[in-house]
Design a protein around this nucleic acid. Sequence first.
RNA 1: GGCGGUAUAGCCAAGUGGUAAGGCAAAGGUCUGCAAAACCUCCAUCGUCGGUUCGAAUCCGAUUACCGCCUCCA
Length: 474
Amino acid sequence: MLKVFNTLTRQKEVFTPITSGIVKMYVCGPTVYNYIHIGNARSAIAFDTIRRYFEYKGYHVKYVSNFTDVDDKMIKAAKEANTTVPAIADKFIAAFMEDTTALNIEPATKHPRATENIKDIIEFVQDLIAKGYGYESEGDVYYRARKFAHYGQLSHQNIDDLEVGASQHTDPEEVNRKEDPVDFALWKAAKPGEISWDSPWGKGRPGWHIECSVMSTKYLGDTFDIHGGGQDLTFPHHENEIAQSEAKTGQKFANYWLHNGFVTVGDDNEKMSKSLGNFVTVHDILKTVNPQVLRFFMATTQYRRPIQYTQGNLDDAANNLKRLQTAFNNLNYRLKDAEPGNDPKIEQEIRQIEADFVDQMDDDFNVQNGIAQVYELAKLGNVYAERPVVFKDSLAFILKTLTELVNIFGIEFKQETLNDDGVEALINERLDARKNRNFERSDEIREQLKAQGIILEDTPQGTRWHRDDEKGNA
RNA sequence: GGCGGUAUAGCCAAGUGGUAAGGCAAAGGUCUGCAAAACCUCCAUCGUCGGUUCGAAUCCGAUUACCGCCUCCA
Protein backbone atom coordinates (compact mmCIF):
# COMPACT_ATOMS: atom_id res chain seq x y z
CA MET A 1 0.00 0.00 0.00
CA LEU A 2 1.53 3.26 -1.16
CA LYS A 3 1.53 6.10 1.32
CA VAL A 4 2.42 9.71 0.63
CA PHE A 5 3.02 12.61 2.97
CA ASN A 6 0.28 15.12 2.32
CA THR A 7 1.15 18.72 3.21
CA LEU A 8 -2.56 19.39 3.58
CA THR A 9 -2.87 17.06 6.56
CA ARG A 10 0.80 16.84 7.53
CA GLN A 11 0.43 13.08 7.61
CA LYS A 12 1.28 10.09 5.54
CA GLU A 13 -1.89 8.92 3.84
CA VAL A 14 -2.73 5.89 1.76
CA PHE A 15 -2.71 6.96 -1.87
CA THR A 16 -6.02 6.29 -3.58
CA PRO A 17 -6.34 7.67 -7.10
CA ILE A 18 -9.59 9.21 -8.30
CA THR A 19 -9.65 6.83 -11.23
CA SER A 20 -8.32 3.35 -10.59
CA GLY A 21 -5.00 2.79 -12.32
CA ILE A 22 -4.50 6.41 -13.31
CA VAL A 23 -2.50 9.11 -11.54
CA LYS A 24 -3.22 12.69 -12.48
CA MET A 25 -0.46 14.97 -11.29
CA TYR A 26 0.52 18.58 -11.76
CA VAL A 27 3.96 19.92 -10.90
CA CYS A 28 4.83 23.61 -10.91
CA GLY A 29 7.49 24.29 -13.48
CA PRO A 30 10.00 27.11 -13.74
CA THR A 31 9.75 30.69 -14.85
CA VAL A 32 11.76 30.54 -18.05
CA TYR A 33 13.90 33.65 -17.84
CA ASN A 34 17.21 31.82 -17.37
CA TYR A 35 18.77 28.38 -17.48
CA ILE A 36 17.28 26.15 -14.79
CA HIS A 37 19.30 25.95 -11.59
CA ILE A 38 19.90 22.82 -9.58
CA GLY A 39 16.93 23.63 -7.34
CA ASN A 40 14.65 23.46 -10.35
CA ALA A 41 16.42 20.28 -11.38
CA ARG A 42 15.91 18.78 -7.95
CA SER A 43 12.18 19.36 -8.13
CA ALA A 44 11.97 17.98 -11.66
CA ILE A 45 14.06 14.94 -10.69
CA ALA A 46 12.12 14.29 -7.50
CA PHE A 47 8.77 14.27 -9.25
CA ASP A 48 10.08 12.41 -12.27
CA THR A 49 11.31 9.71 -9.91
CA ILE A 50 7.92 9.62 -8.21
CA ARG A 51 6.27 9.40 -11.61
CA ARG A 52 8.56 6.57 -12.67
CA TYR A 53 7.74 4.68 -9.49
CA PHE A 54 4.02 5.01 -10.18
CA GLU A 55 4.65 3.71 -13.68
CA TYR A 56 6.72 0.83 -12.31
CA LYS A 57 3.73 0.01 -10.10
CA GLY A 58 1.59 -0.16 -13.21
CA TYR A 59 -0.19 3.19 -13.06
CA HIS A 60 -0.78 5.30 -16.11
CA VAL A 61 0.45 8.78 -15.18
CA LYS A 62 -0.96 11.96 -16.66
CA TYR A 63 1.76 14.43 -15.82
CA VAL A 64 1.29 18.14 -16.43
CA SER A 65 4.00 20.70 -15.74
CA ASN A 66 3.79 24.33 -16.76
CA PHE A 67 6.16 27.00 -17.98
CA THR A 68 5.63 30.46 -16.56
CA ASP A 69 6.48 32.43 -19.65
CA VAL A 70 5.28 35.90 -18.69
CA ASP A 71 5.81 37.83 -15.46
CA ASP A 72 7.93 40.70 -14.09
CA LYS A 73 11.15 38.73 -14.40
CA MET A 74 10.46 37.70 -17.94
CA ILE A 75 9.81 41.33 -18.83
CA LYS A 76 13.00 42.42 -17.11
CA ALA A 77 15.07 39.69 -18.76
CA ALA A 78 13.71 40.60 -22.20
CA LYS A 79 14.52 44.25 -21.63
CA GLU A 80 18.07 43.48 -20.51
CA ALA A 81 18.70 41.21 -23.47
CA ASN A 82 17.12 43.79 -25.75
CA THR A 83 14.64 41.26 -27.07
CA THR A 84 11.03 40.19 -26.54
CA VAL A 85 9.41 38.14 -23.82
CA PRO A 86 8.39 35.33 -26.21
CA ALA A 87 11.96 35.13 -27.54
CA ILE A 88 13.33 34.75 -24.01
CA ALA A 89 10.69 32.13 -23.27
CA ASP A 90 11.46 30.12 -26.41
CA LYS A 91 15.18 30.19 -25.73
CA PHE A 92 14.95 28.98 -22.15
CA ILE A 93 12.20 26.46 -22.77
CA ALA A 94 14.48 24.88 -25.35
CA ALA A 95 17.31 24.98 -22.80
CA PHE A 96 15.01 23.42 -20.20
CA MET A 97 14.21 20.54 -22.53
CA GLU A 98 17.88 20.05 -23.29
CA ASP A 99 18.90 20.01 -19.62
CA THR A 100 16.07 17.78 -18.47
CA THR A 101 16.67 15.36 -21.32
CA ALA A 102 20.30 15.10 -20.25
CA LEU A 103 19.07 14.31 -16.74
CA ASN A 104 16.79 11.64 -18.18
CA ILE A 105 13.65 13.38 -16.98
CA GLU A 106 10.67 12.16 -18.96
CA PRO A 107 8.82 14.94 -20.79
CA ALA A 108 5.48 15.79 -19.22
CA THR A 109 2.34 14.50 -20.86
CA LYS A 110 1.62 18.19 -21.37
CA HIS A 111 3.87 21.23 -20.87
CA PRO A 112 1.39 24.14 -21.08
CA ARG A 113 2.58 27.74 -21.29
CA ALA A 114 0.75 30.53 -19.51
CA THR A 115 0.62 32.72 -22.61
CA GLU A 116 -1.10 29.98 -24.58
CA ASN A 117 -3.98 29.97 -22.11
CA ILE A 118 -4.77 33.67 -21.74
CA LYS A 119 -8.36 33.24 -22.87
CA ASP A 120 -9.02 30.56 -20.26
CA ILE A 121 -7.27 32.67 -17.63
CA ILE A 122 -9.47 35.69 -18.37
CA GLU A 123 -12.63 33.57 -18.20
CA PHE A 124 -11.46 32.07 -14.92
CA VAL A 125 -10.89 35.53 -13.44
CA GLN A 126 -14.27 36.73 -14.70
CA ASP A 127 -15.89 33.79 -13.00
CA LEU A 128 -14.14 34.64 -9.73
CA ILE A 129 -15.34 38.24 -9.99
CA ALA A 130 -18.89 37.02 -10.70
CA LYS A 131 -18.75 34.84 -7.60
CA GLY A 132 -17.59 37.75 -5.48
CA TYR A 133 -14.04 36.54 -4.90
CA GLY A 134 -12.37 38.89 -7.36
CA TYR A 135 -12.47 42.66 -7.72
CA GLU A 136 -10.96 45.12 -10.14
CA SER A 137 -8.82 48.00 -8.96
CA GLU A 138 -7.13 50.43 -11.35
CA GLY A 139 -6.80 47.78 -14.06
CA ASP A 140 -5.54 45.12 -11.65
CA VAL A 141 -7.75 42.33 -10.39
CA TYR A 142 -7.33 41.00 -6.86
CA TYR A 143 -8.64 38.05 -4.90
CA ARG A 144 -10.39 38.56 -1.56
CA ALA A 145 -8.39 36.10 0.50
CA ARG A 146 -10.51 36.52 3.62
CA LYS A 147 -13.63 35.54 1.73
CA PHE A 148 -12.28 32.05 1.18
CA ALA A 149 -13.11 30.23 4.41
CA HIS A 150 -10.28 27.72 4.25
CA TYR A 151 -7.58 30.21 3.40
CA GLY A 152 -4.38 29.02 5.10
CA GLN A 153 -5.34 25.34 5.21
CA LEU A 154 -2.36 24.15 3.18
CA SER A 155 0.36 26.18 4.90
CA HIS A 156 -1.45 25.88 8.23
CA GLN A 157 -1.39 29.61 8.66
CA ASN A 158 -3.94 31.69 10.41
CA ILE A 159 -4.65 34.57 8.07
CA ASP A 160 -4.36 37.05 10.94
CA ASP A 161 -0.90 35.81 11.87
CA LEU A 162 0.61 36.55 8.50
CA GLU A 163 3.13 39.29 8.73
CA VAL A 164 2.56 41.36 5.63
CA GLY A 165 5.82 42.37 4.03
CA ALA A 166 7.95 39.89 5.99
CA SER A 167 9.43 38.57 2.79
CA GLN A 168 10.38 42.12 1.79
CA HIS A 169 9.09 41.36 -1.66
CA THR A 170 5.90 43.34 -1.49
CA ASP A 171 5.29 46.42 -3.53
CA PRO A 172 3.88 49.22 -1.29
CA GLU A 173 2.04 50.82 -4.18
CA GLU A 174 0.33 47.56 -4.99
CA VAL A 175 -0.79 47.18 -1.39
CA ASN A 176 -2.58 50.52 -1.74
CA ARG A 177 -4.67 49.16 -4.58
CA LYS A 178 -5.86 46.23 -2.47
CA GLU A 179 -8.91 46.22 -0.21
CA ASP A 180 -6.87 44.15 2.23
CA PRO A 181 -3.09 43.55 2.30
CA VAL A 182 -3.63 39.77 2.27
CA ASP A 183 -5.36 39.93 -1.11
CA PHE A 184 -3.32 38.79 -4.09
CA ALA A 185 -3.25 39.62 -7.79
CA LEU A 186 -5.23 37.65 -10.36
CA TRP A 187 -4.52 40.05 -13.20
CA LYS A 188 -1.98 42.83 -13.52
CA ALA A 189 -2.42 45.98 -15.58
CA ALA A 190 0.33 46.56 -18.12
CA LYS A 191 2.72 49.45 -17.79
CA PRO A 192 3.47 51.33 -21.01
CA GLY A 193 5.53 49.25 -23.41
CA GLU A 194 5.03 45.97 -21.55
CA ILE A 195 3.76 42.83 -23.21
CA SER A 196 0.02 42.64 -22.67
CA TRP A 197 -3.29 41.11 -23.67
CA ASP A 198 -6.70 42.73 -23.98
CA SER A 199 -9.05 41.97 -21.14
CA PRO A 200 -12.29 43.33 -19.65
CA TRP A 201 -10.03 45.34 -17.29
CA GLY A 202 -7.83 46.81 -19.99
CA LYS A 203 -4.46 45.67 -21.23
CA GLY A 204 -2.62 43.43 -18.85
CA ARG A 205 -1.25 40.01 -18.05
CA PRO A 206 -2.04 37.18 -15.65
CA GLY A 207 -0.98 37.20 -12.03
CA TRP A 208 1.40 34.44 -11.09
CA HIS A 209 -0.92 32.06 -9.27
CA ILE A 210 -3.84 32.01 -11.65
CA GLU A 211 -2.07 30.23 -14.49
CA CYS A 212 -1.56 27.08 -12.44
CA SER A 213 -5.20 26.99 -11.34
CA VAL A 214 -6.31 27.38 -14.93
CA MET A 215 -3.93 24.95 -16.58
CA SER A 216 -4.12 22.22 -13.97
CA THR A 217 -7.91 22.08 -14.00
CA LYS A 218 -8.01 22.50 -17.76
CA TYR A 219 -5.82 19.48 -18.44
CA LEU A 220 -6.54 17.30 -15.40
CA GLY A 221 -10.07 18.23 -14.32
CA ASP A 222 -11.50 20.20 -11.40
CA THR A 223 -10.12 17.63 -8.99
CA PHE A 224 -6.93 15.69 -9.58
CA ASP A 225 -4.69 13.44 -7.54
CA ILE A 226 -1.34 15.05 -6.85
CA HIS A 227 -0.06 18.59 -6.92
CA GLY A 228 3.68 18.97 -6.46
CA GLY A 229 6.29 21.66 -6.24
CA GLY A 230 9.04 23.08 -4.10
CA GLN A 231 8.49 23.77 -0.41
CA ASP A 232 8.80 27.48 -1.02
CA LEU A 233 5.67 27.35 -3.15
CA THR A 234 3.45 26.12 -0.33
CA PHE A 235 2.77 29.68 0.64
CA PRO A 236 1.64 31.78 -1.07
CA HIS A 237 1.55 30.08 -4.45
CA HIS A 238 -0.22 26.82 -3.68
CA GLU A 239 -2.40 28.34 -0.98
CA ASN A 240 -3.64 30.80 -3.58
CA GLU A 241 -4.15 28.12 -6.18
CA ILE A 242 -6.46 26.31 -3.80
CA ALA A 243 -8.34 29.51 -2.98
CA GLN A 244 -8.83 30.35 -6.66
CA SER A 245 -9.71 26.88 -7.87
CA GLU A 246 -12.05 25.84 -5.10
CA ALA A 247 -13.81 29.20 -5.11
CA LYS A 248 -14.48 28.74 -8.81
CA THR A 249 -15.35 25.04 -9.03
CA GLY A 250 -16.78 24.37 -5.60
CA GLN A 251 -14.82 21.10 -5.77
CA LYS A 252 -11.76 19.95 -3.93
CA PHE A 253 -8.71 20.99 -5.97
CA ALA A 254 -5.91 18.45 -5.41
CA ASN A 255 -6.17 15.44 -3.11
CA TYR A 256 -2.50 15.15 -2.22
CA TRP A 257 0.05 17.94 -1.96
CA LEU A 258 3.68 16.91 -2.21
CA HIS A 259 6.52 19.35 -1.60
CA ASN A 260 10.18 18.73 -2.28
CA GLY A 261 12.99 20.04 -0.08
CA PHE A 262 15.60 22.57 -1.07
CA VAL A 263 19.07 22.41 -2.43
CA THR A 264 21.63 24.24 -0.39
CA VAL A 265 24.96 25.16 -1.80
CA GLY A 266 28.30 26.13 -0.30
CA ASP A 267 29.49 26.11 3.27
CA ASP A 268 26.91 28.55 4.61
CA ASN A 269 24.25 25.93 3.95
CA GLU A 270 21.97 28.61 2.63
CA LYS A 271 19.05 27.94 0.37
CA MET A 272 20.02 28.38 -3.22
CA SER A 273 17.65 30.50 -5.24
CA LYS A 274 17.46 32.83 -8.14
CA SER A 275 16.50 35.75 -5.95
CA LEU A 276 19.51 35.26 -3.68
CA GLY A 277 21.74 35.14 -6.71
CA ASN A 278 23.72 32.17 -5.38
CA PHE A 279 22.39 29.72 -7.89
CA VAL A 280 24.21 27.22 -10.03
CA THR A 281 22.70 26.37 -13.39
CA VAL A 282 22.39 22.85 -14.71
CA HIS A 283 23.67 24.16 -18.01
CA ASP A 284 27.01 25.02 -16.36
CA ILE A 285 27.25 21.97 -14.14
CA LEU A 286 26.81 19.55 -16.99
CA LYS A 287 29.94 20.90 -18.61
CA THR A 288 31.98 19.06 -15.99
CA VAL A 289 29.60 16.64 -14.27
CA ASN A 290 28.20 13.47 -15.77
CA PRO A 291 24.41 14.00 -15.96
CA GLN A 292 23.77 10.46 -14.74
CA VAL A 293 25.80 11.24 -11.62
CA LEU A 294 23.82 14.40 -10.92
CA ARG A 295 20.60 12.51 -11.56
CA PHE A 296 21.61 9.66 -9.27
CA PHE A 297 22.74 12.05 -6.54
CA MET A 298 19.39 13.83 -6.45
CA ALA A 299 17.11 10.88 -7.16
CA THR A 300 18.53 8.88 -4.26
CA THR A 301 17.78 11.57 -1.71
CA GLN A 302 14.24 11.37 -0.40
CA TYR A 303 12.23 14.18 -2.00
CA ARG A 304 11.37 15.96 1.24
CA ARG A 305 14.94 16.04 2.54
CA PRO A 306 17.26 18.92 1.86
CA ILE A 307 20.18 18.29 -0.48
CA GLN A 308 23.55 19.80 0.15
CA TYR A 309 25.18 20.31 -3.18
CA THR A 310 28.92 19.79 -2.70
CA GLN A 311 31.69 18.22 -4.73
CA GLY A 312 32.20 15.60 -2.02
CA ASN A 313 28.58 14.48 -2.12
CA LEU A 314 28.71 14.36 -5.88
CA ASP A 315 31.83 12.20 -5.71
CA ASP A 316 30.09 9.80 -3.34
CA ALA A 317 27.18 9.54 -5.75
CA ALA A 318 29.59 8.81 -8.59
CA ASN A 319 31.18 5.99 -6.58
CA ASN A 320 27.83 4.53 -5.67
CA LEU A 321 26.63 4.63 -9.21
CA LYS A 322 29.85 3.06 -10.41
CA ARG A 323 29.31 0.20 -7.98
CA LEU A 324 25.96 -0.57 -9.58
CA GLN A 325 27.29 -0.21 -13.10
CA THR A 326 30.16 -2.58 -12.26
CA ALA A 327 27.75 -5.16 -10.90
CA PHE A 328 25.79 -4.86 -14.13
CA ASN A 329 29.00 -5.35 -16.12
CA ASN A 330 30.03 -8.33 -14.02
CA LEU A 331 26.73 -10.06 -14.64
CA ASN A 332 26.63 -9.15 -18.29
CA TYR A 333 30.10 -10.56 -18.79
CA ARG A 334 29.04 -14.01 -17.65
CA LEU A 335 26.19 -14.27 -20.14
CA LYS A 336 28.48 -15.64 -22.81
CA ASP A 337 29.60 -18.69 -20.84
CA ALA A 338 26.37 -19.24 -18.91
CA GLU A 339 24.69 -22.64 -18.96
CA PRO A 340 21.08 -22.98 -20.14
CA GLY A 341 18.58 -23.16 -17.30
CA ASN A 342 17.97 -21.32 -14.07
CA ASP A 343 18.55 -21.41 -10.36
CA PRO A 344 15.21 -21.16 -8.49
CA LYS A 345 16.84 -20.36 -5.17
CA ILE A 346 18.59 -17.28 -6.54
CA GLU A 347 15.47 -16.10 -8.26
CA GLN A 348 13.52 -16.46 -5.04
CA GLU A 349 16.08 -14.25 -3.30
CA ILE A 350 15.78 -11.65 -6.03
CA ARG A 351 12.01 -11.57 -5.71
CA GLN A 352 12.38 -11.03 -1.99
CA ILE A 353 14.76 -8.13 -2.50
CA GLU A 354 12.39 -6.56 -4.98
CA ALA A 355 9.46 -7.02 -2.59
CA ASP A 356 11.48 -5.30 0.15
CA PHE A 357 12.31 -2.53 -2.28
CA VAL A 358 8.62 -1.97 -2.99
CA ASP A 359 7.79 -1.96 0.72
CA GLN A 360 10.33 0.79 1.28
CA MET A 361 9.33 2.86 -1.72
CA ASP A 362 5.66 2.57 -0.79
CA ASP A 363 6.51 4.48 2.37
CA ASP A 364 6.43 7.98 0.92
CA PHE A 365 9.07 7.13 -1.68
CA ASN A 366 11.75 6.18 0.81
CA VAL A 367 14.43 6.06 -1.85
CA GLN A 368 17.29 5.76 0.62
CA ASN A 369 15.97 2.47 1.94
CA GLY A 370 14.97 1.56 -1.58
CA ILE A 371 18.44 2.04 -2.94
CA ALA A 372 19.83 -0.02 -0.07
CA GLN A 373 17.85 -2.93 -1.53
CA VAL A 374 19.35 -2.23 -4.92
CA TYR A 375 22.82 -2.53 -3.36
CA GLU A 376 21.70 -5.85 -1.88
CA LEU A 377 20.75 -6.96 -5.35
CA ALA A 378 24.08 -5.80 -6.74
CA LYS A 379 25.91 -7.75 -4.06
CA LEU A 380 23.86 -10.86 -4.76
CA GLY A 381 24.64 -10.40 -8.44
CA ASN A 382 28.35 -9.98 -7.84
CA VAL A 383 28.48 -13.12 -5.75
CA TYR A 384 26.48 -15.04 -8.31
CA ALA A 385 28.66 -13.83 -11.18
CA GLU A 386 31.70 -15.30 -9.47
CA ARG A 387 30.29 -18.80 -9.38
CA PRO A 388 32.11 -21.29 -11.60
CA VAL A 389 28.84 -22.26 -13.22
CA VAL A 390 26.05 -19.79 -13.81
CA PHE A 391 22.66 -20.19 -15.46
CA LYS A 392 21.59 -17.96 -18.27
CA ASP A 393 17.99 -17.39 -17.17
CA SER A 394 18.98 -16.45 -13.65
CA LEU A 395 21.66 -14.12 -14.89
CA ALA A 396 19.14 -12.48 -17.17
CA PHE A 397 16.67 -12.26 -14.30
CA ILE A 398 19.13 -10.43 -12.07
CA LEU A 399 20.07 -8.10 -14.91
CA LYS A 400 16.45 -7.36 -15.74
CA THR A 401 15.53 -6.63 -12.14
CA LEU A 402 18.59 -4.51 -11.51
CA THR A 403 17.96 -2.53 -14.68
CA GLU A 404 14.28 -1.97 -13.87
CA LEU A 405 15.02 -0.75 -10.39
CA VAL A 406 17.73 1.72 -11.37
CA ASN A 407 15.48 2.98 -14.16
CA ILE A 408 13.10 4.24 -11.49
CA PHE A 409 15.89 6.55 -10.39
CA GLY A 410 16.43 7.61 -13.99
CA ILE A 411 19.61 5.62 -14.47
CA GLU A 412 20.37 3.72 -17.67
CA PHE A 413 23.23 1.25 -17.57
CA LYS A 414 25.85 1.56 -20.25
CA GLN A 415 26.50 -1.53 -22.34
CA GLU A 416 30.19 -2.22 -22.66
CA THR A 417 31.40 -2.02 -26.21
CA LEU A 418 34.26 -4.43 -26.58
CA ASN A 419 35.12 -4.14 -30.21
CA ASP A 420 38.37 -2.22 -30.48
CA ASP A 421 40.78 -4.24 -32.61
CA GLY A 422 43.86 -2.42 -31.38
CA VAL A 423 42.99 -3.12 -27.79
CA GLU A 424 42.13 -6.74 -28.52
CA ALA A 425 45.49 -7.24 -30.21
CA LEU A 426 47.35 -5.87 -27.19
CA ILE A 427 45.28 -8.01 -24.86
CA ASN A 428 46.17 -11.09 -26.86
CA GLU A 429 49.84 -10.16 -26.84
CA ARG A 430 49.62 -9.73 -23.09
CA LEU A 431 47.94 -13.12 -22.69
CA ASP A 432 50.84 -14.72 -24.57
CA ALA A 433 53.34 -12.86 -22.42
CA ARG A 434 51.59 -14.05 -19.28
CA LYS A 435 51.51 -17.59 -20.56
CA ASN A 436 55.30 -17.37 -20.93
CA ARG A 437 55.52 -15.75 -17.49
CA ASN A 438 56.90 -12.62 -19.12
CA PHE A 439 55.23 -10.41 -16.53
CA GLU A 440 57.41 -7.47 -17.35
CA ARG A 441 55.91 -7.24 -20.81
CA SER A 442 52.40 -8.03 -19.64
CA ASP A 443 52.51 -5.27 -17.00
CA GLU A 444 53.93 -2.92 -19.57
CA ILE A 445 50.93 -3.51 -21.81
CA ARG A 446 48.54 -3.04 -18.92
CA GLU A 447 50.19 0.27 -18.02
CA GLN A 448 50.16 1.38 -21.62
CA LEU A 449 46.41 0.79 -21.88
CA LYS A 450 45.81 2.36 -18.51
CA ALA A 451 47.44 5.53 -19.81
CA GLN A 452 44.78 5.47 -22.52
CA GLY A 453 42.06 5.14 -19.91
CA ILE A 454 41.53 1.44 -20.44
CA ILE A 455 41.44 -0.83 -17.41
CA LEU A 456 42.15 -4.55 -17.80
CA GLU A 457 40.71 -7.20 -15.55
CA ASP A 458 41.83 -10.83 -15.53
CA THR A 459 39.01 -13.20 -14.67
CA PRO A 460 38.67 -16.97 -14.69
CA GLN A 461 36.75 -16.50 -17.94
CA GLY A 462 39.48 -14.46 -19.60
CA THR A 463 40.65 -10.87 -19.72
CA ARG A 464 38.12 -8.12 -20.11
CA TRP A 465 38.46 -4.39 -20.25
CA HIS A 466 36.49 -1.22 -19.70
CA ARG A 467 37.07 2.47 -20.09
CA ASP A 468 37.75 4.43 -16.95
CA ASP A 469 35.24 7.18 -17.56
CA GLU A 470 36.86 10.22 -15.96
CA LYS A 471 33.76 12.35 -16.33
CA GLY A 472 31.81 9.69 -14.53
CA ASN A 473 33.85 10.43 -11.47
CA ALA A 474 33.61 14.16 -11.72
C1' G B 1 5.56 37.85 15.93
C1' G B 2 3.17 33.23 13.31
C1' C B 3 4.15 28.44 10.88
C1' G B 4 7.61 24.62 9.64
C1' G B 5 12.26 21.77 8.92
C1' U B 6 17.05 19.72 10.43
C1' A B 7 20.77 17.84 14.22
C1' U B 8 22.86 9.84 14.19
C1' A B 9 30.50 7.31 12.67
C1' G B 10 35.68 10.86 8.71
C1' C B 11 31.47 11.80 4.87
C1' C B 12 26.31 10.70 2.93
C1' A B 13 22.32 8.48 5.41
C1' A B 14 18.28 4.68 7.42
C1' G B 15 15.94 3.81 11.87
C1' U B 16 9.28 6.51 15.75
C1' G B 17 10.01 1.98 22.60
C1' G B 18 13.70 -3.46 23.07
C1' U B 19 20.16 -2.93 23.41
C1' A B 20 22.18 1.52 16.13
C1' A B 21 20.20 -0.56 7.93
C1' G B 22 22.96 0.63 3.68
C1' G B 23 26.73 3.22 0.70
C1' C B 24 31.43 6.01 0.34
C1' A B 25 36.24 6.67 2.54
C1' A B 26 40.08 4.34 5.79
C1' A B 27 42.25 -0.37 7.80
C1' G B 28 43.01 -5.76 7.72
C1' G B 29 42.09 -10.25 4.95
C1' U B 30 40.63 -13.87 0.71
C1' C B 31 41.39 -14.25 -4.57
C1' U B 32 45.56 -12.68 -8.28
C1' G B 33 52.33 -13.64 -10.89
C1' C B 34 51.23 -8.52 -9.45
C1' A B 35 46.87 -5.83 -10.19
C1' A B 36 41.70 -4.77 -11.17
C1' A B 37 36.88 -6.32 -9.85
C1' A B 38 34.44 -8.96 -6.20
C1' C B 39 33.76 -11.00 -1.43
C1' C B 40 34.77 -11.21 4.04
C1' U B 41 36.11 -8.56 8.59
C1' C B 42 36.55 -4.02 11.18
C1' C B 43 34.48 1.29 12.26
C1' A B 44 29.16 5.33 16.32
C1' U B 45 25.23 4.85 22.03
C1' C B 46 22.33 8.91 18.31
C1' G B 47 23.14 18.23 19.54
C1' U B 48 22.68 19.35 25.18
C1' C B 49 20.02 18.84 29.99
C1' G B 50 16.12 16.59 32.63
C1' G B 51 11.76 13.29 32.89
C1' U B 52 8.48 8.83 31.82
C1' U B 53 9.59 3.46 31.31
C1' C B 54 11.99 -2.93 33.19
C1' G B 55 13.97 -0.67 28.67
C1' A B 56 14.43 5.54 24.45
C1' A B 57 18.07 7.71 18.87
C1' U B 58 12.85 6.68 19.15
C1' C B 59 7.69 9.35 24.03
C1' C B 60 7.37 14.12 27.25
C1' G B 61 9.58 18.90 28.92
C1' A B 62 13.40 22.33 28.44
C1' U B 63 17.61 24.06 25.85
C1' U B 64 21.37 25.08 21.85
C1' A B 65 22.68 25.55 16.74
C1' C B 66 21.57 25.91 11.71
C1' C B 67 17.88 26.41 7.77
C1' G B 68 13.14 27.72 5.34
C1' C B 69 8.10 30.25 4.45
C1' C B 70 4.93 34.66 5.83
C1' U B 71 1.72 37.18 -1.24
C1' C B 72 8.27 37.74 -7.31
C1' C B 73 11.72 31.81 -5.65
C1' A B 74 11.76 24.62 -7.14
